[in-house]
């Protein structure tokens, strides 16, 4: 089992997310993360889907996705040169002076922003690839993570080439 990153261009229409999500659950595909939002093409959205499976399974995922009328193009960008990012918000306990200073120091190293300060906690905002966010989460655990939310991965191909176009 390996994580594959799919970039899926879809019609920006009601129901398209449930068509895609329903396909994954119905056919027993393992979805790791799914993000969706509007993109540079009017009327289209771009999804980044991280799916777990061997090559044959992911091939079947791609083919089934392509069968959906609202799916315009599916690209597997796993093996290609990409930039990928996730955004995470982490609410960390910081009720003593020492821990607060340490959390701020760690945030600094990870280039995370402190975007809210309470009397007993702070909220960090961090962007980066999946591994970086995982690493930060592990480091912050000792102070007590009260809440943690992340967007899932988004990705683009490096260079001027894109994944747009007809399927």
């Amino acid at each position: 089992m390996k994580a594959h990153t799919l970039q899926v261009l879809v019609e920006n229409r009601a129901g398209v997310l449930s068509r895609v999500a329903g396909l994954f659950s119905r056919r027993g595909f393992n979805i790791e993360s799914l993000t969706v939002g509007t993109c540079e093409e009017p009327g289209m959205s771009r999804m980044t889907i991280v799916v777990l499976g061997d090559d044959a399974e992911v091939e079947q995922v791609k083919k089934q996705l392509n069968k959906l009328i609202d799916v315009i193009k599916v690209s597997d960008i796993t093996e290609r040169s990409t930039v990928d990012r996730e955004l995470a918000l982490i609410k960390v306990s910081a009720d003593t002076g020492d821990s607060r200073a340490e959390v701020m120091q760690i945030a600094n190293i990870f280039r995370a922003q402190i975007i809210d300060v309470g009397t007993r906690s702070v909220i960090l905002e961090v962007t980066g690839d999946t591994e970086k966010i995982d690493a930060l989460e592990i480091l912050l655990r000792q102070y007590g993570i009260k809440e943690f939310v992340r967007t899932g991965k988004i990705a683009l191909l490096r260079g001027s080439k894109g994944t747009k176009g007809q399927k």
Partner: peptide
């Protein structure tokens, strides 16, 4: 019915 028939239609419209 569009939700119900999503897995058993080639496509559907509301």
């Amino acid at each position: 019915i569009t939700g119900i028939t999503m897995p058993i239609t080639k496509h559907n419209y509301l």
